[in-house]
């Protein structure tokens, strides 16, 4: 029988490792994909998605049930990713400026897979153009876009980002306007 996230989390709060493994198996792919979409770095995505599950395990007892478990978990994950991105930004600027070190990072940031080997070059170029523009969005705009593409409704994106629905709409509006502008310019 399929157990609800809430029931599983209750058991995790009592340190039930089997329940934790079920929750991890349920959300790990999505968590990893969200982290990767925000960070565009495979190693960071792996570390931070794992870190989000560790935090879920340790703070399961503090879940009050005011939001869905998935939304609560996404909030933990997105906060970790945004904090990491903020910390990394000044360091990247310091280390990468004027050196060739940015080249490998760029490869990591470009959208991977999704394009099959027989897809045409033009499609690959469009993909690169679109996601390079996404890369230039502010952290919150980018997170809002990523979560929207994950199929989360605005209310859940607001919960995950810790802001109002109106703010999420503003983030999305600005993100789409910026992307439209970037795509027209290229």
């Amino acid at each position: 029988m399929e157990r609800s996230d809430e029931a599983l989390l209750e058991r995790v709060a009592r340190r039930d490792d089997d329940a934790f493994d079920v929750l991890v198996a349920r959300y790990r792919e999505r968590a990893h994909r969200i982290a990767w979409s925000i960070l565009r770095n495979a190693e960071d995505a792996r570390d931070l998605s794992q870190e989000a599950f560790i935090r879920l395990y340790r703070s399961a007892g503090s879940f009050r049930g005011s939001a869905r478990v998935s939304t609560w978990f996404y909030r933990i994950l997105v906060n970790l990713c945004l904090d990491h991105r903020r910390r990394r930004r000044w360091w990247d600027r310091f280390v990468d400026s004027g050196s060739g070190a940015g080249d490998t990072a760029l490869l990591d940031r470009l959208p991977a897979a999704g394009v099959h080997p027989d897809d045409d070059l033009a499609r690959g170029e469009t993909m690169s153009r679109v996601w390079s523009a996404v890369d230039r969005l502010s952290s919150h705009q980018r997170a809002a876009v990523v979560l929207q593409l994950e199929g989360l409704p605005t209310s859940e994106i607001a919960e995950a980002l810790g802001c109002s629905e109106a703010t999420v709409r503003v983030h999305l509006h600005r993100a789409l306007a910026a992307l439209r502008k970037s795509l027209r310019e290229t």
Binding site: E29, H32, W36, A45, A112, A113, G114, T126, L179, L183
Partner: peptide, 12 residues
């Protein structure tokens, strides 16, 4: 465009 060109993370 975003949905159509949506990137997938490297295989895990």
């Amino acid at each position: 465009e975003l949905v159509a060109t949506r990137a997938q993370p490297p295989a895990v």
